[in-house]
Every structure is written in C-alpha cells, then in structure tokens.
Design a binder for these strands. Sequence first.
DNA 1: TGACAATAGTCGTTATAACGATTAATACTG
DNA 2: CAGTATTAATCGTTATAACGACTATTGTCA
Lengths: 161, 161
Amino acid sequence: MLQKRTPARKPLAPETLLEDVFVNLLRTADALARGAEVLLKSTGLSSAQYNVLRILRGAGSEGLACSEIACRMISRDPDMTRLLDRMESRGLIARARGKEDRRVVKTCITTEGLRVLEKLDAPVRDLHHRQLHHLPAKQLQQLSRLLERARSNGESSCSPD
Amino acid sequence: MLQKRTPARKPLAPETLLEDVFVNLLRTADALARGAEVLLKSTGLSSAQYNVLRILRGAGSEGLACSEIACRMISRDPDMTRLLDRMESRGLIARARGKEDRRVVKTCITTEGLRVLEKLDAPVRDLHHRQLHHLPAKQLQQLSRLLERARSNGESSCSPD
DNA sequence: TGACAATAGTCGTTATAACGATTAATACTG
DNA sequence: CAGTATTAATCGTTATAACGACTATTGTCA
C-alpha cells in the first residue's frame, strides 16, 4: 500500500492541483447536467423541477415542507415558491397548508406527476449508462466516495432521500 | 493489486451506482460553485463573467472570437453576445471586428479587467484551499483524473486554456 | 460569376433566476 | 400575557438565461 507506485500521469503540479480539481468538477458536472437537460426538454421539465419530483416521490404521501424540499435539492433554488407555483399550475404537485403549524405548506406529488416521472425512469437510467458506463465499477465507487469527501467540508447535510 | 481488499464502504449497490455518481457530482459541483459565487458577489461578477475574464487573460493580446470563448467556458452559455455586452459596458473587455474575416469579433481583456482579476487571484486560491485542503494530494489527483475520464465520453474538447 | 450553403454574431421575446423586503404564524422570555 | 425573536413562505423588482429567428459575411461549386 505504501510502495512508490505513483504513475506520474501528470507532472504533479502542486500549485494548480486544487484549481484542476475545481475546474474538472464543474466541467464534468456541466457535461452530465447538459445531457439530462436535453433529455428533460421533451417533457418541458427543468432539471430543478425534475429534482423536486424525485424528492417528492421519495418522500411519503404526507408531503414535504417547502424548506425541506429546498434543502434536499441538488442545486439549491433560492425561490422555491415560484418553482412550485409553476409545477402546481401544470398539475404535477399539490399544496396544502399544514394543520398543526399553519406556517408550513405541505407539498405532494400528484398521480400526474408520478406518471411523468415514471415515463422518465428508463430514459434517465439509460442516459447515466451512456454517460458513465466506460468507467469500471471500482472507479465509479472511488469517484463517488471522493466526491462525498470533497464536499464534506462546509455543507449542511439534510437527511438524505 | 488483485487481492480482495474492497472495504465494503457501501453495500455495493450495482443499480444505484451510476445514479450515485451523477448526483454526487452535481451536488459537489454546486457546493463548490456556490462558494465561488459568494466570493465573486462583492465584485459584481457572475461566475460566467469571471470565467470569461480568466479565459481572456490566458489568451494572447490578439483576443479571441466569441465562439472560441464560448467553447472554452466551464458552463456553456448559449448567448455570448449579451454576456460580453455587459462586460464591455463595465469596461472589463474590449471588442473589435476582425480585419481579415469581418464576421468575427475579437474580444480582449482590458487593463481594468486585468486589475479586477488580479485582486481575485489570492482570494480564489484561498477559497480552493479551504474547500479542498482536507483531501490529501494523492486523492486530489485521483479525483481529477477520474473526473476527466468521466466526461471523456461525449464532449467536444476545445484547446485547453 | 451567381446561386446556395455555411458560419459568426446579433437581436426579440418569453420565461426564469436572484435579491431583498414583507407577511403570517409560532416560539421564547421576562 | 405582552413584546420580541424566529421560522416559513410569499411577493415585487431587476437582471439574466433560453430559445428561435434574423443579418451579414464568407466559402463552395456548377
């Protein structure tokens, strides 16, 4: 484990290493996200809307508060209200004031929302496969683990899906 | 190298592995990008504008065509014209029609743009350090390499900075 | 050379994002 | 139990992004 096996793939530039990681992360994320947006465009969903639907499907039938959705999202949206407004007007979600705490608004996915989501499940799996299948499973796990570590610094983690 | 040393950090779910990578990539990128936006907010630059300035500083003094900038950007912007409009009106860049091919518009960074950029150099390095210093160099290199591989599928690579 | 296609960039319009201030309901505190 | 702070969500406004259609310049080829 400690034998000198660094393959010197890059000249080990210590100054630009952090920046390389930063840029590569953003570039790769943008490339993957763009693929997803192309796929979603046919349904008229933005990736934020798709993400909300996924979160609501994963949550129980009792629904989630606005702020809970916001904090579970992949890319945080500062104005959940109007994002949900648009989804409600398309019939994808339903909202209702909470009974106990009348400040909160519980949001649920509708059957229409579920239907739209289900039609996307296979294409999305397929997309991920096309995007990432050229990496062996071991490297995918390594990557996933490193990514989690990378953001383990300053992020308030909400309870996962 | 082939001895059974998988530490079983995760139950090796083969179905959700691709999705995990996808979500972790987007989440981590968002976390890092948000830090950068906070830093840039004091200067009034968006991250796209900052990225353009970096690209133009890296390019020679002869400037770059609109489309060249677009294709080197981290997150592609579909409307370079108005992005550059705003930067020009703030005096950060200068534009001029090409002499040989009068279709192209060459864009250069101004001394004002360079000044703004230089004031950000140290804070940005510092930010990257704060965001990522908890990972040892070896893991950072691994991560960088895996990210490059991950997007080596469907992306048209422009000449790097 | 003259028609047609390709390329570079611009612009009109609509929808969305971003920022801050605001309202409403609940929790705390003396 | 009144006053203040906190929390949840909404709204007004401005700027930006997204999507096409459009103009101008250059290349291609019969």
